[in-house]
């Protein structure tokens, strides 16, 4: 608990001491991918449902947030709300179909992946709105409403750093709140023994859907941020590789923990910045890390660290 508070405080204090744009850029990407990782972990690590639907929600909300802001004139922070609601609707449809038919483990993964592919096809071919393969260049800055300061435009690495860090913090808090309540007990019961959960009166379908909807809704905010930060959105946001990258982060960091995916995100986002690799070599490295983690260190960095600490304490 104390260790966690120190870590978070250090993150908040960091820009006061470090002014390296290079480092801040890495951390901004870490935070955005961390949001995806934490929310995937809610669905996968905590509820036991291996979802491949994250890229769809990530991409759709990136497009929607930008389009709502540029075409409908909504401020950025308001445009994220309809995007999140769309994510919930999509998650409800896909989740209902999968959970109704009790698709589990890799059948669930495949069907969510197939749905994500269909959504990618729609985005790719809806030229009039999405500009197809060419993608959209994002102009304008995200704006945030702050109490006492009114609407502020996000400009410069430090402002971006705090915007993404606060977003990540809120994501973690919402997930932690769900997990420490009766909801989290239901998620865990479903992950560990679905049939037993059912005989104890837990509506398995409803809580799987709840986990899936909450995870996807929170993931949608990462999409909006990513689009604005990189100033470019294309159908690659919805690609299968995106799913694999986030999954690798969750596994490497430690599934079933909230800090793990952020650690995994830090390692894997800084890697291409620290060593210069071409895209193919990077994919090979990610694949190798994924396999290594599963076969050699299945609990991930944080899980292994926690186990080591528990052993030392005992």
């Amino acid at each position: 608990m104390i260790l966690r508070l120190v870590l978070w405080s250090a993150l908040y204090a960091l820009p006061i001491f470090v002014r390296s744009d290079f480092l801040l850029t890495i951390l901004i990407f870490t935070f955005i991918y961390g949001m995806l990782g934490v929310t995937l972990d809610l669905i996968f690590g905590f509820t036991g449902q291996l979802s491949m639907f994250h890229p769809a929600v990530f991409g759709v909300s990136a497009y929607m947030t930008y389009l709502l802001a540029s075409k409908a004139g909504l401020p950025f922070w308001l445009a994220t709300i309809p995007s999140a609601l769309t994510a919930v609707v999509l998650a409800m449809i896909v989740g209902s179909i999968c959970f109704k038919f009790r698709l589990k483990t890799f059948y669930f993964a495949v069907v969510t992946l197939a749905f994500a592919e269909v959504i990618r096809l729609v985005v790719l071919n809806w030229n009039s709105v999405t500009n197809g393969t060419l993608g959209l260049v994002v102009t304008g800055r995200p704006t945030v409403w702050l109490p006492g300061m009114g609407v502020v435009a996000i400009k410069g690495p430090v402002a971006w750093y705090y915007l993404t860090l606060v977003s990540l913090t809120l994501t973690v808090i919402v997930c932690a709140r769900c997990l420490s309540s009766w909801m989290g007990r239901c998620f865990g019961a479903i992950r560990l023994n679905e049939d037993l959960a059912r005989t104890l009166g837990i509506d398995v379908f409803r809580y799987k859907l709840a986990s899936f909807a909450v995870g996807n809704a929170l993931a949608s905010f990462a999409g909006g941020l990513y689009g604005y930060y990189t100033a470019y959105i294309d159908p690659g946001y919805l690609s299968i590789n995106q799913s694999m990258d986030v999954l690798a982060m969750v596994l490497l960091g430690g599934q079933g923990t909230l800090i793990g995916p952020i650690v995994g995100s830090l390692v894997l986002t800084s890697l291409p910045h620290v060593i210069d690799l071409r895209a193919e070599a990077r994919a090979i490295l990610y694949g190798a890390i994924l396999i290594f983690t599963i076969l050699v260190m299945p609990r991930g960095i944080v899980g292994t660290f926690n186990a080591w600490r528990a052993r030392r304490a005992a």
Partner: peptide, 21 residues
Amino acid sequence: QVFAELTVFDNAMVATHLALK
């Protein structure tokens, strides 16, 4: 049938679902 990876206490806490509801 128990949730093997949870503590005894947490197992029983899962079973409070209906009472809480």
